[in-house]
Design a protein around this nucleic acid. Structure first.
Length: 366
DNA sequence: AACCACAAGAGCACTGGCAC
DNA sequence: GTGCCAGTGCTCTTGTGGTT
């Protein structure tokens, strides 16, 4: 069974554009195999492309194989996911773009921090938020808070527009549990701030999707840094499925609550500058021990997992009592087309002129 | 820094089994 | 016989670890 030994010719490979086109067709066919004439037309089209014309003729069988493999891969992936996770009431379309997923073309080899997460962090130092999607339990950057409402259980919810996604992906999200300040991609020098026991946002890559999930650091293997940067390894356990994985630093986004560790490490280094590369001492190891053993844990650390809005006032003002300092100022803009108030998260705070959606309206709306 | 070896994963090709 | 699914085999690419 299987493919016979090669005949010496270079391995055939579909180009990115060809794959993109076939994926689009597969999606358009609702994951069903297109008709033979479609496959034949595709093969002919690919064969006539400038890259292949006169060199490699794409066979209809090859196109057919691709669709077979792709369909099987998608099916296998989805069944695996459903088996590991609780079945989501609204499973995300496998073909849907992945929020926050690093774009290979844009970030070829480097790291997950080259993704939109890292870029946004570096370019925008103002407070940003991330929200946990109820569809796949993954965390995504928040582009906008569109509206908010109160449930009868007094749990406030916000209507979130995810960064890089359109209105179709908007979700009502429980503010207390599933909205928080944005996690930050770690730079090479920041591995010292990641220690066992930490809650981190970890980039879990699957065959069909790659998403950011909550995970706890189980162990950290410190290694000497070199020209490639941090080479430490972290054993993490994902909260959503309890699976464990050893990941490099680039797949980890640390919680802002650990910022104090970096500051302390920075201060310590300034007080007693040491070049660990020359001494042979791993910077991460030394600093991590110091940090971990720090007794004066900042107040912030106690609230590491505290939702942004610890309590909600009875007024219509959508502002947390406990974490106002963490909340950005909210600029309310009226979306004329939608007739709703649009709240920009970038520099935003919810204000009282944002309409409150009653639980009755909610039942109708969502 | 450059190089090499190895492992893991991705992608493609193919087969056997099953249902119609 | 045909179409589809599930799985395996082979090759290539990429990432990683070690050595010089």
């Amino acid at each position: 069974m299987g493919r016979p030994p090669g005949n010496g010719s270079p391995a055939f490979r579909f180009t990115h554009s060809e794959v993109a086109e076939m994926e689009a067709i597969l999606h358009a066919h609702n994951n069903a195999l297109p008709a033979h004439d479609v496959l034949t037309a595709l093969a002919e089209k690919f064969s006539e492309s400038p890259d292949r014309k006169g060199k490699i003729a794409v066979q209809m069988k090859q196109v057919w194989n691709w669709f077979q493999n792709k369909r099987y891969a998608i099916r296998a992936k989805s069944s695996k996911t459903l088996g590991k996770l609780d079945i989501s009431p609204m499973p995300r379309d496998a073909s849907a773009p992945v929020k926050n997923m690093p774009q290979p073309a844009a970030a070829p080899v480097s790291s997950a921090s080259d993704s939109t997460r890292g870029k946004a962090t570096q370019e925008n130092s103002s407070m940003e938020f991330e929200a946990k999607s109820g569809r796949d339990r993954a965390w995504y950057d928040v582009a906008k808070f569109l509206s908010h409402r109160y449930l009868e259980t007094s749990n406030p919810e916000v209507l979130v527009r995810f960064s890089g996604f359109g209105p179709a992906e908007d979700e009502w999200i429980n503010v207390r549990k599933n909205v928080r300040p944005r996690s930050m991609p770690c730079e090479s020098s920041e591995c010292i701030a990641v220690i066992p026991g930490d809650l981190v946002l970890c980039f879990q890559e699957g065959k069909e999707q790659a998403l950011y999930f909550d995970a706890h650091v189980q162990d950290a293997q410190r290694r000497r840094h070199d020209v490639r940067g941090c080479r430490c390894r972290f054993l993490v356990r994902y909260d959503h499925d309890q699976s464990e994985e050893i990941v490099p630093l680039r797949k980890i986004c640390r919680r802002p609550e650990t910022d104090y560790r970096l500051r302390e490490a920075h201060n310590a280094n300034e007080a007693a500058p040491v070049d660990p590369q020359k001494t042979g001492m791993d910077p991460a190891t030394g600093n991590a021990v110091d940090v971990a053993s720090t007794s004066a844990e900042p107040q912030m650390q106690q609230n590491a997992n505290t939702p942004i809005f610890a309590s909600v006032s009875q007024t219509n003002v959508f502002a947390p009592e406990q974490s106002m300092d963490m909340m950005p100022e909210i600029e309310t803009v009226t979306d004329v087309a939608a007739g709703n108030s649009v709240v920009n998260a970038g520099n935003a705070a919810f204000t009282s002129n944002v309409p409150v959606v009653s639980s009755q309206n909610m039942a109708e709306g969502n």
